[in-house]
């Protein structure tokens, strides 16, 4: 190599310290870099949820058997879903709260469908670190605010499943859903 560098013909095209060989170096390295990125994309993308996982994205649930005060737990995208039929007292409790003072300010109306505000449908996934809160099944602890209670790190949710106390940053997530009839709801 040293011999090549000192050969005057190698510097024939040199202008302002730029050699023709520099172009070859930059072009070769850039081309290889583009190749590396092109190969890295599928290697990274394969980690994302696959088509069969995404295909489970929507379910239908019949609500007719759920009495006021009762809740059921079902599964959507491999995650638990809580469907609760709120009692009038619970609705009143949720409405009494000063929304502005909440950690994640949202009214009960915003978290339910118009005219169906007794149906509270949320993910059963604590927004702290993803545990399933207690309170959906009969006899479980419902926390200081009468909604749900996550035993992992002590997050308390109120009757509208809004975070009131503990480390969770957000209210329990309300998934996208629609009533397809009076008693059937489609989630997802």
């Amino acid at each position: 190599m040293a011999v090549v560098e000192t050969d005057p013909s190698a510097n024939a095209g040199m202008e302002d310290g730029v050699r023709r060989r520099d172009f070859i170096n930059i072009a070769a390295v850039s081309f290889a870099g583009v190749g590396v990125v092109a190969v890295a994309l599928p290697l990274v993308n394969q980690m994302n949820p696959s088509a069969d996982v995404l295909a489970l994205a929507s379910i239908e649930v019949d609500l007719s058997a759920i009495q006021p005060g009762q809740a059921i737990k079902t599964s959507w995208r491999k995650q638990p879903i809580f469907i609760r039929n709120l009692t009038p007292a619970e609705i009143e409790d949720a409405k009494k709260v000063d929304v502005g003072g909440l950690r994640d300010p949202e009214s009960l109306e915003a978290r339910t469908k118009p005219g169906k505000e007794n149906w509270l449908i949320t993910l059963g996934v604590c927004t702290h670190l993803g545990c399933v809160p207690l309170g959906a099944a009969a006899g479980e602890l419902r926390g200081d605010f009468g909604g749900y209670f996550c035993p992992c790190h002590g997050s308390h949710y109120d009757t509208a499943a809004r975070i009131r106390k503990g480390p969770a940053p957000k209210n329990l997530v309300v998934p996208e859903y629609a009533f397809t009839s009076d008693t059937v709801v489609q989630i997802g």
């Binding site: 980690m47 949820p49 995208r77 491999k78 996934v125």
Partner: peptide, 17 residues
């Protein structure tokens, strides 16, 4: 998180990787 798990919750994809 979904990229790490390959799903919305831990499942087969997560266990395999």
């Amino acid at each position: 998180r979904q990229w790490l798990l390959g799903g919305f919750a831990p499942d087969n994809a997560a266990l395999n990787r």
